[in-house]
């Protein structure tokens, strides 16, 4: 098991990268400017790429270098560029109406992290992995998941919702790199590709929203009920 015999340096590197990614999610949660979200997402993707490369180096998984490069290309450059284009076209710069103030959502996010920690330390104790980087990876993975759902729930702009979904995906991807670095390469590649298709679809849909609904605020989408 790679997780149990890691050098202290490797495991602190992993922890550092994972924790910075988690902090970046809080940056997204605490801001109401769409560009901040995007920037935080891009930096997070680069961190995940760095994580892949580090895991590849210490765990001797050469294929993870390829994953790292592709992560930078797709998640770090292409996706932010596509989303930036959508933002420019929309001319919406920030969330105007928030269901939850940034300060309150930070607190809610912190509570979710605590919940994620409780769940993962319980899992870690069950597996005899308590205190290892695996518990941290699980915590970060679950908290990014939960915070992504929080963002989907309290933000109304179409862009915020897309980024919320991407945070969900990032969380899983980050956890995967530490927990199951040996996952077949094919899967990782296809998931990356899949993400690209998701964002392309969103781009088209957002344009439809603009032309046919006249707004990208999801509060306008309330005709279908019952």
């Amino acid at each position: 098991m790679p997780i149990s015999h890691l050098t202290p340096l490797a495991s602190s590197l992993f922890s550092l990268l994972a924790i910075i990614s988690l902090v970046l999610v809080f940056v997204m949660l605490g801001s109401r400017w769409l560009k901040d979200y995007l920037l935080a997402f891009a930096v997070e993707s680069w961190l995940i790429a760095a994580l892949s490369a580090t895991v590849g180096y210490y765990g001797h998984y050469p294929e993870l270098y390829l994953v790292a490069i592709l992560t930078i290309l797709f998640r770090g450059l292409l996706l932010p560029y596509l989303i930036l284009r959508i933002i420019r076209r929309l001319g919406v710069e920030r969330e105007l109406h928030i269901a939850m103030q940034p300060s309150s959502s930070l607190v809610a996010g912190a509570l979710l992290v605590i919940f994620a920690f409780v769940v993962s330390s319980h899992l870690g104790a069950q597996l005899g992995l308590a205190g290892t980087v695996a518990v941290l990876a699980l915590t970060v993975m679950l908290s990014m998941k939960l915070i992504g759902f929080l963002m989907l729930a309290v933000r109304h702009q179409a862009i915020s919702q897309i980024l919320g979904l991407l945070v969900l995906e990032n969380g899983i991807f980050l956890g995967t790199q530490i927990l199951v670095p040996g996952m077949p390469l094919l899967l990782e590649l296809v998931i990356l590709f899949d993400l690209l298709v998701v964002v392309a679809s969103f781009g088209v849909l957002v344009r439809y929203l603009m032309t046919h609904v006249g707004s990208t605020d999801s509060r306008e989408l309330k005709r279908l009920v019952g």
Binding site: M141, K145, G148, F149, L152, A158, Q161, G164, L165, L168, E169, I172, G175, T176, L179, V180, M183, I191, V198, S201, F202, L205, Y208, L209, H212, V213, S218, L221, R223, L224
Partner: peptide
């Protein structure tokens, strides 16, 4: 391309993508 059908499409892709990402987490 009516107002309602775009609304339905948007809700569909957001809700199902978010939901199915839980299945990915479970699979991992």
């Amino acid at each position: 391309l009516g107002r309602e059908s775009i609304e339905a499409a948007w809700k569909y892709i957001i809700v199902v993508s978010a939901g199915i990402s839980l299945a990915l987490l479970g699979t991992v």
